[in-house]
């Protein structure tokens, strides 16, 4: 579905730059980009929907280079969930969910019905919350709306930039469960950025470990833990796991 070929992006300040790297993401796959801040994981995500343009290399979506797409319509057909909440504060919940269908000029009545369905799917009581304003909702509820908004575009591909980073542990756990279930039942392709090791392990079909703009290793959680390709990956997983083991033994 997505192919990155020798893609590089540099900044004057080096932070969040990408060395030339290649990556293949299949349809229906849940891929997590794992790395610390400045590793280039957000840069990589933003190259896919042309929020950033690469210095070199090519990104293809469904076999077609993204630079051949009109950036606006490209973005309207890719769901995006933000690190901050990113809801428009002057619009009600249902208006936020309807953002992209309205930008595209979709049929209003139909979109409106679907918006209620999407709210139900992210387990938010549509009848109760549809007309509320974002600031009347908890952080977890707001991010459910964020996910519903991304799904309401009808996109097969969702880009998620540390969406649960600002939530408390319990709420984050609920949303992770909900997201994984939705992804499997709807068969969406998701590229998900996080610095949280356990979030990556829980959600990913495949994890891409990024460090200083380079891919350290790509693989399932099991592969990364059992067959680390580099000392960085080994370190990344062994220390927290060791800590857990220590607790269990005690």
């Amino acid at each position: 579905m997505i192919t990155l070929e020798q893609v590089a992006k540099s900044y004057q300040h080096q932070y969040d730059a990408l060395a030339p790297l290649s990556l293949e993401i299949a349809a229906g796959e849940f891929v997590v980009l794992l790395g610390s801040s400045g590793s280039g994981k957000s840069t990589l995500l933003k190259l896919i929907n042309r929020l950033l343009e690469p210095d070199q290399g090519e990104i293809r979506l469904q076999g077609r280079p993204v630079r051949d797409y009109d950036p606006v319509s490209l973005r309207r057909n890719i769901g995006y969930v933000f690190q901050g909440i990113g809801l428009l504060p002057h619009w009600s919940v249902v208006d936020n969910v309807l953002t992209v269908p309205r930008l595209r000029g979709d049929d209003e009545d139909e979109s409106y019905q679907q918006a209620f369905d999407w709210l139900d799917r992210v387990q938010l009581d549509a009848k109760r919350y549809a007309q509320r304003m974002p600031d009347e909702l908890s952080g977890g509820q707001q991010q459910r709306v964020g996910v519903a908004r991304a799904l309401a575009s009808g996109a097969d591909l969702l880009l998620m930039d540390e969406p649960f980073g600002a939530l408390d542990a319990i709420t984050r756990d609920e949303l992770q469960g909900m997201l994984k279930a939705l992804q499997q039942s709807l068969n969406k392709t998701i590229v998900f950025v996080t610095h949280d090791l356990f979030e990556a392990i829980r959600l990913a079909d495949r994890i891409v470990v990024l460090h200083q703009g380079k891919i350290e290793q790509v693989g399932s959680a099991r592969e990364l833990i059992n067959e680390p390709a580099t000392p960085f990956v080994e370190n990344l997983f062994s220390k927290p796991l060791q800590a857990l083991d220590d607790l269990r033994l005690r």
Binding site: L51, R75, G86, L87, L88, V100, L103
Partner: peptide
């Protein structure tokens, strides 16, 4: 800034962003 970034990522045109988001806010 994050509201404006969100608009860009969602596929607002300049004009849609101005009229629907920036001026109302």
């Amino acid at each position: 800034a994050d509201v404006l970034e969100a608009c860009q990522a969602l596929g607002f045109t300049e004009r849609q962003r101005l009229i629907q988001v920036e001026l109302p806010l």
